[in-house]
Amino acid sequence: MKYYTRQTLLQKIKDVYSEDSWNEFVEIYRPYIYHVIKTFGVKAHEIEDHVQTTLIVCWQKLPEFQYEPDKGRFRYWLSRIAKYTVSNHSRKYRRRAELDQEIEIPTSLSPEIEEISDREWKMFISKMAWDNIKDDLTENSRLSFSALMEGESVESISERLSMPKNTISVNKKRIAPKMIKEIQRLQRELG
C-alpha cells in the first residue's frame, strides 16, 4: 500500500512562485540535497557548488513536478536532479534561461541512488522533527533522548548526566510518540 502525501507545503511552494517561496524552499530542502550530494562522493569543496546548482534546477523544474505515487516521491525527484547535476558538473549553467531548455531529468533512479535518497531522507526528516520539538523539552530530557538516538547506552548516559536509568527510559517513552507524530506530519508536508 502506497503512503499518501498531502504535499501541502510542496504545493504551496509550487503555486506561489516567488522570492519568498524560493527562500522557504531553499531553507527546507538544502540540508537534504547537501547530504545526498555528499554521499555521491563529491570532493568536499565542490559540494556547495553542486547543492546550489541542484537547488536552482529544482526551482526551475518545480512546476513540472507532478506528484505521481507510481513514479516516485518528491525526494527521488530531488535526488535525480542532484545526481544529474553532479554527473554533468563540467557544464556550467550561468544563465538560468539555459536550464529550462537543456536539462533532461532522468526519469528513473538507480537502486543505489534510491537507497541513498531514502537513507538521507530518514535522517533529514528525523533531525528536522527533532529540531521542531526539542525546544519544548527540559534540558535533561533533550540530552538524554538525543544521546540514546546517537547510540549511547543507558548506563553511560545515566552516569554522564547523573540521571536515574528509569528516568531516561520514561523520557524516551514520553518523547518517542511526539517524535513519531512530528515525523508523520513532516512526511505529509514535505513529501
Partner: peptide, 11 residues
C-alpha cells in the same frame, strides 16, 4: 527505537 532512522521507520 534506538536511532534517528529507527524513529522514522516506526513513524
Amino acid at each position: 527505537i534506538e536511532s534517528w532512522e529507527s524513529l522514522y521507520d516506526v513513524a
